Amino acid sequence: MRKFLVPAAIALVLGSSGLAMAAGAAAPAVTPAPAAAVATPQSVSDTIKSFDLTKHTITLGNGKTYILPATFKDPGLKVGSKVTVKWQMKGTEYDATSVTLG
């Protein structure tokens, strides 16, 4: 019986000290998630490098590709035409809200 009690007592002491240390350890501070950044509408004037009306995208001379709205009506876009694109960031995409010639 003594062979059983001594190891059990040691295990109990070691186990309870580990629990006491875990309970005493300070939990890491939880920082609140930053408020979602509000997308600020912006505009850019540049020439059309390429556009794809089936994918609803337009790429300007600055190299950025803008996603056109699903309801976009083509005002006669041509590669090389100067346009003004009003856009805002949605995630990692440049979301165009309007495209005007000139």
Rank of each mutant, 00 (worst) to 15 (best):
M1E: 01
M1H: 04
R2K: 14
K3Y: 01
K3N: 05
K3F: 04
F4R: 00
V6N: 03
P7T: 01
P7I: 02
A9K: 00
I10T: 07
I10S: 03
A11W: 01
L12F: 12
V13R: 03
V13S: 11
L14K: 04
S16Q: 06
S16N: 14
S16K: 04
S16A: 14
S16P: 07
S17T: 12
S17C: 13
S17N: 10
L19S: 05
A20Y: 14
A20C: 07
M21L: 15
A22H: 12
A22C: 06
A23E: 08
G24C: 08
G24M: 09
A25F: 09
A26S: 11
A26H: 10
A27C: 06
V30I: 13
V30P: 04
P32A: 14
A33P: 10
A33G: 05
A33W: 09
P34A: 13
A35F: 12
A35W: 07
A35T: 14
A35R: 11
A36K: 12
A36N: 09
A37V: 13
A37S: 15
V38L: 15
A39E: 09
A39H: 04
A39G: 12
T40Y: 07
P41F: 08
Q42S: 12
S45P: 02
D46K: 13
D46W: 05
T47N: 09
I48M: 07
S50W: 06
S50T: 13
S50C: 09
S50M: 06
F51Q: 05
F51H: 12
F51V: 02
F51A: 02
D52T: 02
L53S: 11
L53H: 02
L53G: 02
T54Q: 09
T54R: 07
T54E: 10
K55W: 05
H56C: 04
T57N: 11
T57Y: 15
I58H: 00
I58E: 02
I58M: 01
L60E: 05
L60R: 10
G61Q: 11
N62L: 11
N62W: 05
K64H: 10
K64A: 15
I67G: 03
I67F: 05
I67R: 08
L68G: 00
L68E: 01
P69Y: 01
P69A: 09
A70F: 06
A70N: 08
A70L: 13
F72I: 00
F72T: 00
K73I: 03
K73R: 11
K73L: 03
D74M: 02
D74E: 05
D74V: 00
D74A: 00
P75L: 00
P75S: 04
P75D: 01
L77A: 03
K78T: 08
K78S: 14
K78N: 15
K78Y: 03
G80F: 07
G80K: 13
K82I: 02
T84G: 09
W87C: 03
W87S: 03
K90H: 12
K90I: 08
K90L: 08
G91C: 11
T92S: 12
Y94N: 15
Y94I: 06
D95Q: 11
D95I: 03
A96V: 05
A96Q: 02
A96S: 11
T97H: 03
T97C: 01
V99Y: 01
T100F: 01
L101N: 09
G102L: 07
